[in-house]
Amino acid sequence: MVRNQTFGTKAAEALLIAALALISFSSLFPIIHNLAISFSSPAKAMAGFVTVFPKEFNLESYKKLFEDSVFFQSFWISVKRVGITCFISFFISLLMAYPLSRSRREFKLRDVYMWLLIFSMMFNGGLIPFYLIIRQMGLMNSFWVLVLPMLVNVFNVILIVNYFRSIPKELDESAAMDGAGPWYKAFRIYMPLSMPVLATTTLFLIVTVWNEFMLGMMFINHEDSIPLQTYMQQIVVRIDPTLIKSIEDVKRLASVSDKTLGAAKIFASMLPIMLVYPFLQRFFISGIMLGSVKE
């Protein structure tokens, strides 16, 4: 009886491990498949049956990628955009979060600001008014149209506010006793103590800004100043899958479109996310929970 039970438990455990391994594999499979295509020879990739491992391994597509100046131009614009947005947003969010983390008695207008921000998060005017007003502002074809709308992320600000509120009030009071003003307290006391949440919000912003493609698509007409995701979007969407109705069409298009180069571009565009991913993973679990501690 006892033996039976242990056998049953072990079988269940093995089944569980097998199921989870299978699910994990299917999570990665499309990405690995793409990677395998990028390292295969164009002929083999078109003929098919590249699954997990490259067929006729070669670096031809990556050689072509390095000669593609438009790709690197837009890659560089995206890097610049992420860097500038995250840097400015860090300070703006910190400066917003400090007064908002004060109590209603300390900061009279706190609730007015807070509700305005909550409202801006819950309601929006829709795409078209946004589009027309950005155009009216004269931000068309400007690099800053990629940065300015992304600087204030209300969700991130609230995350920081909630973290600030978990810092003991005594710290704030004793600093005030020593003559520290709000700016000094925000930068010298709250900022160093809040690095976990600030790292979390910054990492989330890096991912959001890197992945954003709409602003470049709507507001930038020059091909040499679009960010990477917008450039990739044009490449991806230009190939209309419905035009390919038969294998004959595929063969006809084979000479024109280059499957391996496309796959290499997709992988290269994912690379920055993969690079920050280990850091992301360390922070986002704690980060999501950070905001949930309330008095």
Partner: peptide, 26 residues
Amino acid sequence: IVYLPHFLSWVLLAGILRDFFAVDGI
């Protein structure tokens, strides 16, 4: 492994999926 796809953009994943489910796809 399973958290990773959340952080990749739909632009890139659409590129992969279009290939995946294409008439000559895997």
